[in-house]
Design a protein around this nucleic acid. Structure first.
Lengths: 115, 115
DNA sequence: CTGTATCCTTTTAGATACTG
DNA sequence: CAGTATCTAAAAGGATACAG
């Protein structure tokens, strides 16, 4: 949730999830589902999407989500290596929750002044 | 989420939130909203609802939620003191999210074998 | 580009004992 | 009944450096 860790960087302006995550914790996992919901993305894409997450933490989260079968990792036979992550069917099950959180995030900002 | 902390006690059987919380973290706050959504409850009620949370942690969570205006604390003029907690309008805003998580929790258990 | 390895800080949680 | 006080541990996050 909120500044559980004051060092967490500010999320991108256009992600309405944030106001909600100020109350319902563990930001990164839900944010990753949110961005992967827009389609497969590469490691570096996610880094930019998430606005400041360290490679260490992103890697930790992705491994954890992979282990839980929420996402799949696919390494492309390119040089240098490119890796694409995408939601599994199980991962997509979380989208209604993400949607509800997103809507709430908007509402909290609009009607309750949560920034 | 899941056994982030292996010492976290198992939640009550009839709380479908758990399978979902195995993926989307910080259990206690969302669970408290879930139970308070059923009406005002006392400290001891919540302790039982939450199945094994320590008084210290419950107290911590309630103070935190109070500070964020998600709940209100009302001390009754009885002896011994009784204290009733309830959701504020802001706290009630979270119910759609809780509902979505609850539905997902059921689905994860029924269709994906998440326990 | 996609990570892993270290090292360190903050948050959450748990056990236990004790109090008005 | 409803907490507070300690002390400890685990999880998550962050900074930075380095590697295939």
């Amino acid at each position: 949730m909120t500044p559980r860790n004051p060092r967490r960087p500010a999320p991108p302006e256009d992600c309405p999830l944030d106001a909600c995550l100020k109350f319902l914790s563990s930001a990164w996992t839900t944010r990753i589902v949110w961005f992967l919901g827009m389609g497969p993305r590469r490691f570096g894409d996610l880094r930019r999407d998430l606005g400041g997450i360290s490679t260490k933490v992103l890697s930790d989260r992705l491994r954890s989500m992979e282990k839980k079968s929420m996402i799949v990792r696919r390494a492309l036979p390119t040089t240098p290596t490119q890796v694409e992550y995408s939601l599994t069917p199980l991962g997509r099950e979380f989208e209604p929750v993400i949607t509800a959180m997103t809507k709430l995030g908007d509402k909290l900002r609009d009607e309750h002044g949560v920034r």
